[in-house]
Amino acid sequence: MLTHTWIITQTLGQTIAVILLLIVVFKSLPILMHWNRESASFLQLKLERRTYLISTIIQFVFWYQIAGLLLFLITVNNILPGSIKGAMCATGVLSVNIFGYPLLWIKLIAVIVYAQFLFLNRMDGREPLYPLTPNKYYWLFPALLLVIADFILSLLYFSKIEPDIIATCCSISFSTAKDSSIFFIAANVRMVPMLIFFYLSFALLVISVIFFNRGPELSFVISLGFTTTAVFLLKNHFVKYIYGLPSHNCLFDIFWGRYYYIGYILFSALIISLICSLLLLTLKYIEKGLSAPVKPIRKILQWGAVLGSTLFTLLCSIYWLNWIFLD
């Protein structure tokens, strides 16, 4: 399948990302070793110049990876189901071989890691003395690892797709609902406690983000809980009301135009909320070294965390309530 236009584009983009990040890591090694804030040597000047290159490249790769995630989602949701037999949506496409789902996870984690680095970079750039400078570059190593993993997994995943072999789509996923996999335990879990937990964690998240400035660890943990519950409930509860079908527990059909691409909105809201609460946590640890006021930044992050989770909860609830009150 490597001759497919969409796949060529993504592989090309991933290759570029790997090359650029290799360059970046290679260039950042001297910074990690020789950075000395007090020194006025020629080496230090050279290293300072180098930081511009690194932050520019990471910014570029970050935006490319966001677009690449979008491209990947379009590929598995809309493009590939046509050419793989039996696959009706991304569930079937991603499960044609074992590399599908790990690839999706790695792409999501990579976005979070880039966001973390860019945030550190941004905070560092506001200061005249670059207090975070040598240390923030340690984040480049996980980023590089993720990009390489992403590249290799993409190659394996796309090259191992055989259009002739029948994929097992939802028809199989539903009938083996008692599978041990975490997203298929729906049959055994009662929905009501989960729903209560979902709304409770949402309320706690909002309260802790707004009122407990000192304890971002708490809100980050709550945010993790909220996100997991949200994805679980979206898959097993809310999608039914989005599709209007009681038996259709497919997580990926919401990315289709038939449902107004609502999946893109829901998942970006969720991811923005998660990233913002993670950054609030980061902010607490770097705050001491910063001289510029961090209050406006914190405000933005708080707004991001609250608005993202609210948007998600509101949209899901509207679908649900709409269905209840219609009947």
């Binding site: 236009t5 969409w6 584009t9 090309l12 983009g13 570029i16 090359i19 650029l20 360059i23 110049r49 511009y52 290159l53 520019t56 490249i57 570029f60 490319y64 677009a67 690449g68 979008l70 491209l71 379009i74 809309n78 493009i79």
Partner: peptide
Amino acid sequence: FSEVLLIVMLAVVPFIAATIIPAWRGAV
């Protein structure tokens, strides 16, 4: 829209990637 996005990615990304480092060389 996805086709246009695909073409833009195929066209713009490599070009920008190829010009980042020379741009930085000039800038320093």
